[in-house]
Design a binder for these strands. Structure first.
Lengths: 230, 230
DNA sequence: CGAAAAGCAAGAGCGGTGCTCTCGTTGTTG
DNA sequence: CAACAACGAGAGCACCGCTCTTGCTTTTCG
């Protein structure tokens, strides 16, 4: 399948990798808005027009970086999940959330690319959906394992609206679990709310508001866990 | 103070308003990334260089739009607060949250400008902080009124970390309330998490995940209210 | 093996951007 | 009325994404 056939093909993968590497450097340094194909080409010592042999447009280059970033973040979340295998469900939840926050603070521009403003005329290509789902799947895994060990509180306080229950059933099926619908609904909400917490911190909305960021985050995570039923 | 002195000054405020109006039009139509000074000037029938007599840079124009957008959103939230004056605390909370979501869905590009990626080399000017605080203040008002009517559950489940308590005290002072620290901490978290929910919807992260958006949002808001103590 | 085909790098060029500077005009003010 | 400050317009700079053409090199196939 991926057998390297000749000098040409070998060169192609190397140049492609070099372009992505330099682009990632510029992304981390200046942000997506300031990432320019011409600057990448300049830094690589090639003509800007030559880049278009490898990426048909700037958006395609960005998409490649997006996928890599989703995978990097997903990997961090999954690592936290694996490392906390022996901890309590609540602790595992916090561990995964912490991993997401830590990654976001370490890669603010990549985080912005993933969860900030969608690029102007953007369409999420199909290739991004699987990597994008990894964080959600890691959070769901915590709930699934908690259910297996009896750590999951079953009923939520309020009754679930009918259509929310329908969504929850479908999501549970997509997740391949038989989590109770209230837990799935809470999980989905907590998933988005986690990125509210992280986003506010990365984007500076907590400036002059929250100073004890670490402690505040952990404390808020506990509330999210409670919402899921952990 | 704001007496119009002559034809020149009168023309200045009119042209300034016309620029902002056309810029807002382009922002709503195409998003901040596609907003161009030259296009605004073109549409207004003036030379692009003349725009710089009114806004020293593109970022300054955007900042003006940001302030207006914060005020528009804040106004929506405060209107919901006022209109629900006779409702229960939980209902008022949901009403304010709903107003935020409704505004965001009606003005996605403005919402993106406020809560999406900060613009490239951005510094939040001092003029934005007061308008930006209005939503948070509206949410806090719900909690304050609930405390007055005894609708606020006082103690949170878990003990507040010391430094979080310190933050909460300061925030309560800034808010001019004597809300209990756990409520303030929950309020701050819920504030950011609200924008997690709204942001995921506006930015399309709920695509193929949550279909019953209205019901899901209301249900999730109730969980946020619970987190505050309502 | 040699010719045709395909992949590739480079340059020139198009239309667009933010922004600056100069210059002539026009309203304001001492 | 004269000096001054604000203003509009135009030219121009450096940058951008992207396209097209021109040669060159590698691969492929008769």
């Amino acid at each position: 399948m991926s057998v390297i056939k000749g000098a040409r093909e070998r060169a192609r993968v190397e140049v492609t990798a070099a372009i992505k590497e330099e682009a990632r450097r510029q992304l981390a340094a200046e942000g997506a808005a300031r990432l320019s194909l011409r600057a990448v080409a300049r830094e690589l010592g090639m003509a800007s027009s030559a880049l278009y042999r490898y990426f048909p447009s700037r958006d395609d280059l960005l998409t490649a970086l997006i996928i890599d970033a989703y995978d990097s973040l997903g990997e961090a979340a999954e690592a936290a999940l694996a490392e906390s295998a022996n901890a309590s469900a609540a602790e595992r939840w916090t561990a995964v959330c912490r991993a997401v926050r830590k990654w976001a603070l370490a890669h603010p521009h990549e985080y912005t690319l993933l969860y900030g403003s969608p690029v102007p005329g953007y369409r999420a290509p199909q290739d991004t959906v699987a990597p994008a789902a990894r964080v959600g799947l890691a959070l769901a895994a915590v709930a699934r394992d908690a259910q297996a060990t009896g750590e999951l509180r079953s009923p939520a306080a309020k009754a679930l609206p009918e259509r929310v229950r329908t969504d929850a059933e479908r999501i549970a099926a997509d997740l391949g679990t038989d989590l109770p619908e209230p837990a799935v609904a809470g999980l989905t909400a907590a998933w988005s709310q986690l990125f509210g917490l992280v986003g506010f911190e990365v984007f500076g909305h907590f400036h002059n508001v929250v100073e004890a960021r670490d402690e505040f985050f952990d404390h808020s995570c506990a509330a999210l866990a409670h919402q899921v039923g952990l």
